[in-house]
């Protein structure tokens, strides 16, 4: 059995084959593979006995269910109004400079992806970003440099 089949099987054993298990299963695949490949979605569809189009339709609805390969660390910088007012553009510029990628891209070594996201609930300490599940707020150019350097060196 291919790796993805093993993974999907494991997740199905954990969450079941009912439709309400779909999102936890999709989340489980993203957590392990960093994205949902066509193979993964087809496999899930088979296990849940629904069409692959249903799986794809659900997956593409949600911004945290990636359907293109992403890096080990997904950086999501908040682009909503208060973060925007508090200097999000400068922070984004620094991120693009350090990582040498644009928004939507992944670094060559597959370590980082850079994305924009809508309000993450840290408006009082904007600009803010998420790196996977971790929150970083009150960002400045220097602070962003430090955070990313730390990820490059230590993670």
């Amino acid at each position: 059995m291919a790796d993805i089949q093993v993974l999907v099987k494991e997740l199905v054993n954990k969450y079941g084959t009912k439709r309400e298990a779909l999102i936890p299963i999709l989340q489980g695949v993203v957590a392990s593979e960093r994205y949902l490949s066509s193979e993964a979605m087809i496999e899930i569809a088979k296990e849940l006995d629904i069409s692959a189009a249903e799986v794809y339709g659900t997956a593409t609805f949600y911004s945290f269910l990636e359907t293109v390969p992403r890096g080990k660390y997904v950086i999501r910088i908040c682009r909503t109004i208060v973060c925007e007012m508090n200097g999000k553009k400068d922070v984004l510029k620094i991120l693009e400079e350090i990582l040498k990628i644009k928004v939507g891209e992944t670094t060559m070594d597959k370590k980082f992806s850079l994305l924009e996201t809508n309000c993450i609930g840290w408006c009082h300490q904007g600009p803010a970003m998420l790196i996977n599940d971790e929150v970083y707020s009150q960002l400045t150019s220097d602070k962003v440099r430090e955070i990313i350097q730390d990820y490059i060196r230590n993670k």
Binding site: T80, I81, V82, N118, C119, G121, W122, C123, H124
Partner: peptide
């Protein structure tokens, strides 16, 4: 809680 400007929850 997704409304921009809300973080009380």
């Amino acid at each position: 809680e997704g409304e921009p400007g809300t973080f009380k929850d």
